[in-house]
Every structure is written in C-alpha cells, then in structure tokens.
C-alpha cells in the first residue's frame, strides 16, 4: 500500500520532458521538502537512453513482483506461470541495465501502483498490457538515439522479449485472438509503435513517485 505522502507527492512530481533543465528541478525540489536522493536525471547520450530503459524495467519488475505477491483471486496456473516468467525477465532486464550502467545508473525508483486493483485479473492484466506495449514503443523509439552498436543489440535483445510478453498478455486477455497477434498495436503498414522518451515518460509518470528528469533526451 502506498502512503498518503506518496500519493500526494505523486501529484507534485512529474516527469520532466525534453527542454526541462536540471536547474529547474533542483530549484523546485527543496520547496516540497523532498530529498535530492528522490530525484533522478537520466543523463546524456547512450547513458541517458540506458537509464531510460532502466527506469522502465524497474517499473515493470516492481509491478509483476507486486502482482505475484498479491495474486488476484483464483489465479489460474497458466496466468501464474506466465506472470512469473515475465517478472523474472523484467528483473533480469533491470539488473542487466543496472550492471551495464555501473556508477551512471539512476537510483532505485519509488513506484506507485495505487491505481491498480491487484485483486482483479482484469486490472492486473490490463496494466500489464499497458506496460508491455509502452515498453515496446519506448525501445522502438529509443533505438535511433543509441550510438554504440553493442547497446543497440542489447536493446534489441530486450525489446523483442517485451513484444513477446505483450502478445502473451494479449493472449491471456483474449486467447487466440487477432489482438494476440498484434492487432490494436500494429498499424496498416505492419508496424509496431515507436515513441520518443518525451511521449513515453508522461505515460509512465502516474506509476512513479520519484521525480525523473530527461533534460537532453528528445
């Protein structure tokens, strides 16, 4: 359960998109009495992109961990096994990115899933659907921002697993449906979505308490 403090803080602290400077963030923060340790600037270039991915993987890993610690009623073994595997993957992604970033990694983010009803299968799987598809669009949009080939391959090795997750969640929601093969997310050209950080971060913001700034990412 999130404290009232977390919830109110959530409304005060928002992702800062491109163009927002760190100076503004640090000037604002003390007014709210929030410790500087709760803020995270993603950074420049490849480091910024990896931190961006790291933030999203932290969010996903925390979500599935919480979903499995508080399983919805009558969770079927099929749901459970798939959610457990996805959780383990997200943790592996998170830890991989953290290790890759080393001392450049942003801190652990404080999350807020108060909008999720963990007792409801529809709420949990619906949120998973949002997170997986957001992850796919985020990695697809971030690829062009990466300049180091090894990082691009690493991101590629993660994004296709996120897309596999998205299909698996869609299948749990609607077994063997066109949606499970991508309809709803794939356009008439046969393309998945690709979103830049400035489009993705606001969608993730309601679930993250820690202020995350992306001063130089588009």
């Amino acid at each position: 359960m999130q404290s009232k403090t977390s919830l109110s803080r959530r409304h005060l602290l928002k992702w800062a998109g491109a163009g927002t400077t760190v100076a503004i963030a640090s000037a604002v923060l003390p007014n709210f009495g929030i410790s500087a340790a709760l803020a995270a600037e993603l950074g420049d270039g490849d480091i910024g992109v990896l931190n961006y991915a790291y933030a999203l993987e932290q969010l996903e890993a925390a979500f599935y961990t919480q979903a499995l610690e508080n399983p919805f009623g009558n969770m079927q073994v099929n749901d459970q096994r798939i959610l457990q595997q996805i959780r383990d993957h997200e943790i592996a992604h998170r830890d991989f990115l953290k290790r890759a970033l080393g001392s450049n990694a942003i801190p652990a983010l404080e999350v807020d899933f108060s909008a999720v009803d963990f007792s409801s299968r529809a709420s949990v799987l619906g949120t998973a659907d949002v997170f997986e598809n957001l992850g796919v669009a985020a990695y697809n949009g971030a690829g062009q921002l990466i300049s180091t080939p090894d990082y691009l391959v690493a991101a590629g090795s993660i994004v296709s697993v996120e897309a596999r997750h998205a299909a698996a969640i869609a299948d749990l929601l609607r077994p063997f449906s066109a949606e499970a093969a991508g309809r709803g997310n794939v356009d008439q050209k046969g393309l998945d979505k690709a979103l830049l950080p400035s489009k993705v971060l606001p969608k993730a913001a309601p679930f993250i308490v820690t202020e995350v700034t992306a001063a130089t990412l588009p």
């Binding site: 697809n140 296709s160 697993v161 996120e162 991508g182 393309l191």
Partner: peptide, 8 residues
C-alpha cells in the same frame, strides 16, 4: 525495429 517487434 517496428517490424522486428511485430515478428516477436
């Protein structure tokens, strides 16, 4: 990349 994730 947008094709790649569809294949996945």
């Amino acid at each position: 990349l947008q094709i790649h994730s569809v294949e996945a």
